[in-house]
Design a binder for these strands. Structure first.
Length: 465
RNA sequence: CGGGGCGUAGCGCAGUCCGGUAGCGCACCGGCUUUGGGAGCCGGGGGCCGCGGGUUCGAAUCCCGCCGCCCCGACCA
């Protein structure tokens, strides 16, 4: 070990975050305010998130579609709470082709309105329901304080929009997404443990009847909202006339839902797993899962064979054959990028019939016989995946405290406090003055509260990104 | 938008107080020697000193205005 590569997390976490994004070639600021250039390494992670999520979205019966980037301004105004919530952060196009537009177009901050408008035409009968749609898109929100991945003016996401015959069906959908899609991906693929819960009225999505969330805890003890799932009830159906004729012949309003996960989760992976030497990527979202580092040119043939053998097991493996670049430089580079497993193979190893395995989730190096080596890679990657997850869980638990008074809420991490002991909305408002927020409410047994559950609630409180 | 800090080579910075025609480290290019934890030596290339105006013989430096970025808040996926 020589000079340190990054500002240590403990010294200045935001600085560490920016440095690691730059040095791992993840992303950088775009030329326009608050915009982001996602470089191949960062985009590769997002693509893996997308693939995992898209598979589950489809497995739960949804179809992808695409709706316009530009939305007539008046659409936003049709749902009172929605327009109130989003107006401050809208980008509005007033000039097109050199002419002032008769009606301004907003660049979508989210697509409930355009999709609601389409749904009103597509849905006539109860037989048209449920209508289960999703789109992968970019959206724009004029945020006051952008941060790469966590809050950028333009960001990429998926947004699901569904319509149902009843409140109960919509509620079941809202929960299905929360559990079977979002939790499955964020917890199971990104390896970020999250608390699932209900948002307070104060934190609820603009226009929703109830909002559910998944809250992760980053290594600096701040929370990150990693996804949300909303039940709109009939709010948007009323605003956009999404109605259908029931089996009994009556005219009924549909109940709609919406739910989204964005490129923010990439920032979450960085901040939940990364250490002072760089990223630590869970194998399931690492563009390269195993890198074979040829120590010297004489070992290249053996490295090629090993790389091919590993590739044959279905692992994403890359050969680093840049033997004109020093060993140390290359080792540091792969550590920064967070590749889960690095294999160092040099002439000495070849001679001894071994390779040196370096796992990013633990310290130390492990000489391993080349015989049967490749076959062991998939299970080693599973180990790394589990180990990073376990470390994140342990860390989250260490940083979670039960308190019985709002006065005891101070410092990093989650604070669990009875919703009544906090003082409900009044207590929540007081916390806000100190930059703390109620991230979500859960039942005392840890389960997710129903929309109208108002007793037996525990608040998870933290500072948040 | 409130509080604080900063804009000088791709990145990180010195120079600004006290005006004299731009420098350091890393990165980059070429050559040789190297390569098992960010290699060494030699030789190179690269700058509207954030932008606009003013003062001056002369401005990175002084004055005025503007813009942008970062950190801490309010807002949020």
């Amino acid at each position: 070990m020589s000079k340190s590569v990054l500002t240590p997390q403990a010294d200045d976490f935001p600085r560490w975050y920016q440095e690691v994004l730059a040095k791992a070639e993840m992303a950088e600021n775009g030329p326009g305010r608050g915009t982001m250039i996602i470089r191949p390494w960062g985009y590769g992670i997002w693509e893996l998130v997308q693939r995992a999520m898209d598979d589950l979205i489809k497995a739960t019966g949804h179809s992808n579609a695409y709706f316009p980037l530009f939305i007539p301004y008046n659409f936003l105004q049709r749902e009172a709470a929605h327009v109130e919530g989003f107006s401050p952060e809208l980008a509005v196009v007033t000039i097109g082709g050199g002419e002032e537009l008769a009606e301004p177009l907003v660049v979508r901050p989210t697509s409930e309105t355009v999709i609601g408008d389409a749904m009103s035409r597509w849905i006539q009968s109860y037989r048209d329901l449920p209508l289960l749609l999703n789109q992968w898109a970019n959206v724009v929100r004029w945020e006051l304080r952008p941060r790469l991945f966590l809050r950028t003016t333009e960001f990429l996401w998926q947004e699901g929009h569904t319509a149902h015959t009843s409140w109960d069906d919509a509620q079941a959908e809202t929960m299905r997404i929360l559990d079977e899609v979002y939790f499955a991906v964020i917890d199971g693929v990104l390896g970020v443990p999250v608390i699932r819960g209900r948002k307070t009225d104060r934190e609820r999505f603009a226009g929703a009847r109830v909002t559910y969330t998944l809250e992760g805890l980053m290594r600096d003890g701040k929370a990150l909202q990693m996804g949300t799932s909303h039940n709109m009830g009939t709010n948007f159906a009323k605003a956009f006339d999404i109605s259908y004729q029931s089996e009994g012949g009556t005219e009924e309003l549909a109940n709609t839902t919406s739910w989204g996960v964005s490129t923010r989760v990439v920032g979450g992976v960085v901040m939940a797993h990364g250490d002072d030497r760089g990223l630590r990527l869970p194998p399931l979202v690492s563009p390269v899962q195993v890198v074979v580092l040829a120590v010297k040119p004489e070992a290249l043939d053996a490295c090629r064979r090993l790389t091919d053998d590993i590739a044959a097991t279905g692992v994403r493996v890359k050969l680093d054959d840049r033997t004109d670049t020093s060993f140390g430089r290359r080792a540091v580079e792969w550590e920064l990028k967070g590749v889960p497993v690095r294999i160092e193979l040099g002439p000495r190893d070849v001679e001894q019939g071994q390779a040196v395995v370096v796992r990013r989730d633990v310290d130390g190096k492990q000489p391993t016989p080349l015989e049967g080596f490749a076959a062991g890679m998939p299970s080693m990657l599973e180990d790394v995946q589990r180990s990073l997850y376990d470390q994140a869980v342990a860390r989250r638990n260490e940083m979670t405290a039960d308190v019985d008074s709002a006065d005891a809420i101070d410092g990093p991490g989650f604070f669990r406090i009875g919703w009544d002991a906090l003082g409900r909305e009044d207590g929540e408002a007081k916390l806000a003055e100190r930059a703390y927020s109620v991230r979500c409410l859960v039942k005392s047994d840890g389960s997710v509260p129903a929309p109208d559950d108002s007793d037996d609630l525990i608040a998870y409180v933290a500072k948040a990104y």
